[in-house]
C-alpha cells in the first residue's frame, strides 16, 4: 500500500486531479509554483548565508569549505551505512537462519554465520509444507492480476485522457473515490459477494476483485495527459485511430511508467494476505503468504523451514526488483521530468 501511496502522491504532484485538461494543468501548476517559491526562499536563505560568509574574507570561507565538505560527506556515508545495516540485517539473518537447525536458531548468543549450512530446508519447504503449490497459486493469481490491472488501467487512463464522453468527470471522480475507501471497510461485503457468486475457494475470488485499480487509472490518466495533443492529431492525419495511437505511440512513450506500475502491482498482489485468507480454505488455491503461515503448523521446532519458506516467497520480488530497477527509477521520475 505504501508503494501505491508513493505513486499516487507523485502522480498528484505531476498533474493535479482536475477532470478537464486545464484543471489538471492548473493543479500541477499551482503545485509547481508553490514548490518553486519555497525553493526560491531556501535559495535566498542560502545566498544570504554565503554573502555573510564572504564578509569574513575569501580565504576563511574557502578553508571552511575544505574542512566541511569531507566531514559532510563522511557523515552522509555513515548515515547511509547505518541505514543499510538496519534494512539489510533482517534479510541477512533470515538467510542465515534458513541455513541453521532450529536449535542453532534458538541459541544465545545468536549464530551470525552458518558454519555448516543446511540446504535441505529449502527442499523440505517444498516437500513437507507444500510450498510448491502455494508458489504456483501465487504466480497464477499475481500474473493474472498484473496483466488485468495493466490492461484496465491503461485503457481507462487513455479514455479519461483522450476521449470525450458523457459523465467523464463523474466517472473519473468515482475512480478516484475508490482510492479513498480502505480495504477493511469493504472486505466483509466483498466476501459476501464472492460467496454469493459461488466463487469461494476459487481463483476468480482471488483475482477478479483486483482486475481494476483506481490508483492505476489515475496514474495512467495523469501520465497520458502529458502526451502532446499534436502527436494525437499527427497520428490521426497519418491514418491511425485510437487503438494504434495507444499501442504505437502512447504505450511506448510511457514504457517506464508501465514497468514501474507492473512491478508495484506484482508486489501488492504477491504480498496479499488478508483477502486470500478469508476467501479460501483449501491448499489447492491458497497463496504463498498464507502458506508461510501454514508452515508454523508443521511444528514448533521447524523455524528453519519458516525462514527458508520466507526467503523462497520473497525471491520473485527480489529478482524482479533487480531486473527492473532501472525502469522503476525512470518510471518514478518520468512524471517529474514531463511536468
Amino acid at each position: 500500500m505504501s508503494a501505491r501511496e508513493t505513486l499516487q502522491e507523485r502522480s498528484a504532484a505531476a498533474g493535479g486531479i482536475g477532470d478537464s485538461d486545464s484543471g489538471g494543468m492548473a493543479g500541477g501548476g499551482s503545485n509547481g509554483s508553490s514548490g518553486g517559491s519555497s525553493g526560491g526562499a531556501t535559495g535566498k536563505g542560502g545566498m544570504g548565508g554565503r554573502r555573510s560568509g564572504a564578509a569574513y574574507g575569501r580565504g576563511h570561507n574557502r578553508s571552511r569549505n575544505r574542512v566541511r565538505r569531507p566531514m559532510t560527506m563522511g557523515a552522509r556515508y555513515l548515515l547511509l551505512a547505518v541505514l543499510a545495516i538496519v534494512i539489510g540485517f533482517p534479510i541477512y539473518i533470515t538467510v542465515v537462519n534458513s541455513l541453521l537447525t532450529s536449535r542453532q536458531i534458538a541459541a544465545r548468543p545468536p549464530v551470525l554465520f552458518p558454519v555448516h549450512p543446511l540446504w535441505g530446508d529449502f527442499a523440505a519447504a517444498f516437500s513437507q509444507a507444500h510450498l510448491g503449490i502455494y508458489l504456483r497459486n501465487s504466480a497464477i493469481v499475481t500474473i493474472l492480476i498484473v496483466i488485468a490491472e495493466l490492461v484496465t488501467s491503461v485503457l481507462a487512463g487513455y479514455a479519461f485522457a483522450f476521449l470525450k464522453f458523457p459523465f467523464r468527470r463523474l466517472l473519473f471522480m468515482a475512480c478516484i473515490a475508490t482510492m479513498m475507501v480502505p480495504m477493511e471497510a469493504t472486505i466483509v461485503p466483498n466476501r459476501q459477494t464472492i460467496v454469493a457468486l459461488g466463487w469461494f475457494n476459487s481463483f476468480p475470488a482471488l483475482i477478479v476483485p483486483f482486475i481494476a485499480s483506481g490508483v492505476g487509472i489515475f496514474l495512467f490518466r495523469q501520465a497520458f495527459l502529458g502526451v502532446p495533443r499534436d502527436l494525437r492529431d499527427a497520428a490521426r492525419l497519418d491514418g491511425y485511430g485510437h487503438w494504434h495511437f495507444l499501442t504505437r505511440i502512447v504505450i511506448p512513450l510511457n514504457r517506464p511508467l508501465i514497468a514501474a506500475f507492473a512491478l508495484y502491482s506484482f508486489m501488492s498482489a504477491w504480498n496479499q494476505y488478508l483477502w486470500p485468507l478469508i476467501v479460501t480454505d483449501t491448499n489447492s488455491v491458497r497463496t504463498v503468504q498464507i502458506g508461510l503461515k501454514q508452515l508454523e503448523g508443521v511444528g514448533l521446532n521447524h523455524f528453519n523451514l519458516i525462514f527458508a519458506g520466507t526467503l523462497l516467497a520473497a525471491l520473485p520480488i527480489f529478482l524482479l526488483l533487480i531486473v527492473f530497477q532501472r525502469q522503476l527509477v525512470r518510471g518514478l521520475s518520468a512524471g517529474a521530468l514531463k511536468g
Partner: peptide
Amino acid sequence: VDPRNRDIAMVFQSYALYPH
C-alpha cells in the same frame, strides 16, 4: 470525412515528431 481519408498532410508548430 475522417482526417485520415482527406489525404491532407499537416506540419505542426511543435513538429509533432514521435520521440521514440
